[in-house]
Amino acid sequence: MPDLSQARRSVLEGLGSSDGAHGALSLLPPISRLIFRGRISTIGRVAAAFGVEPAMEPCRAAVSGERAALWLGPDEWLLLAREGEAPAIIGRLADALAPLSYSLVDVSHRQVGLKVTGEDAQAILNAGCPLDLDRHAFPIGMCTRTLLQKTEIVLWRVAEAAFQLEVARSFAPYALRFLQQAERDL
C-alpha cells in the first residue's frame, strides 16, 4: 500500500502564476485552514489556544507569526496556520474550549491561496472585484468575502501593496486565469 500522505497536489499545478509582464501574481504554498464558528463568548479561549486573538471588528484579520484569524462573519473566522498543523490545532482548541459549544472544521483543501502584489495589485483586482481598494477604504489588515467577477473570494490586504486571496478549489483556475488576463490588460 503506497503512503500518499505527503503528496498534496494543488488544483493550480501547471497553470503557472504570473505570465503577465508585471509579475504581480503568485500561488501560495499549501497551508492549514480551519473554519471556526461559535458564539463570541468563546473567542477568548480560542485566542489563548490558537495564539491569535480573532478580531471582533467586522472584516478584520489578526495575525501572529505564521498564524492568522480572519473575520468572515459575526460567528465565523477563518484560521490559517502552517501546513500540517490542523490536527494539532483541533486538539488544542478542543481542550481549551470544553465544555463550550462551537464548530471547528478542517477546510485546508477547500480553497487555494493566491497573492497579488505590487503597485498594480489594486487595478488587477478591480478588474473583477467591485470593492473600493483604496488604502483608506480597504486598509492593511482588512479581510472580507467578496466577488472576483464570477467567483467568490476572501480578500485580505496583507500589506500596502499586497493582497492575499482565498478561492474555492474548483473556482481557483478561473480566478487565476481571470487575474492573469487582468494583468495583461492593465
Binding site: R37, D75, S101, S103, V105, V107
Partner: peptide, 12 residues
C-alpha cells in the same frame, strides 16, 4: 440552536 454549518464540498 447551538450548531453551525461549514461547506465542505470542495474539501473532499
Amino acid at each position: 440552536l447551538d450548531c453551525w454549518l461549514t461547506s465542505t464540498t470542495e474539501q473532499w
